[in-house]
Design a protein around this nucleic acid. Structure first.
Lengths: 110, 110
DNA sequence: CTGATATCTCAGCGATTGGTGAGATGTTCC
DNA sequence: GGAACATCTCACCAATCGCTGAGATATCAG
């Protein structure tokens, strides 16, 4: 034994492994905007067209369309034209992608 | 009857209620940063001091301290000095606040 | 007390981001 | 075809955000 039996100092552990939170951060960034979060919440109840969501959220349609483009690239939503009136783009959630995002966030908020 | 029995037009619903996503957006904004998300992930396994988290995350200590201040104000984490060596501020998660944030996010990602 | 350590605070700067405005594309109605 | 409608794209600008650097505070060791 070296010297005494004094209680061990708090000895900060400076070798902790870095947690990988990239997926959670990417998902959170998509949710961290009132329009994008509102879109996801609206689409949780079923498909909607751009003008419906813009009206519900009190936002301009081209603004909503911009956000939808980002969410499309991220794979969170899909668009398809209405079969009766093809002027309307109806958006719906990609439930698998949403589940993946949810899992990534829960890994941090566990 | 008015005229015919043609299929009803898609008739966008322009009177949908605006979903309230403010809490989810606030929680997502806190998670939408690699350092803050990393801190939460580290604290999920137990308390840590600032220098430990800074080392694990590869960030400077004053930077980590800045983010911790924001998370403290949001109520997500608590700080207390180590009883043996009071130089160290040990941070721990507020599990109730984390549960609230999780619930707000799941309300959108439902 | 002095120097080293751990943390905090904050002004300033550069990068990122969301909204706006204008124009383009595609579709329906007449 | 032409007008109205629904959506998309993108450059531009203002606001926001995170990092840095410097200095302040608090604690501990000798």
């Amino acid at each position: 034994m070296t010297s005494t039996d004094l209680p061990v100092l708090p000895a900060p552990r400076l070798d902790l492994p870095a947690p990988d939170v990239r997926d959670a951060v990417a998902s959170a960034a998509l949710l961290a905007d009132p329009i994008r979060a509102g879109i996801l919440r609206l689409l949780a109840d079923g498909p909607h067209c751009v003008c419906e969501m813009a009206a519900a959220l009190g936002a301009r349609e081209n603004n909503v369309s911009n956000h939808l483009a980002r969410m499309r690239e991220a794979g969170l939503v899909r668009a398809s034209r209405h079969t009766v009136n093809a002027r309307f783009q109806y958006y719906e959630r990609d439930d698998l992608a949403v589940a993946t995002a949810r899992a990534a966030l829960l890994e941090v908020l566990r």
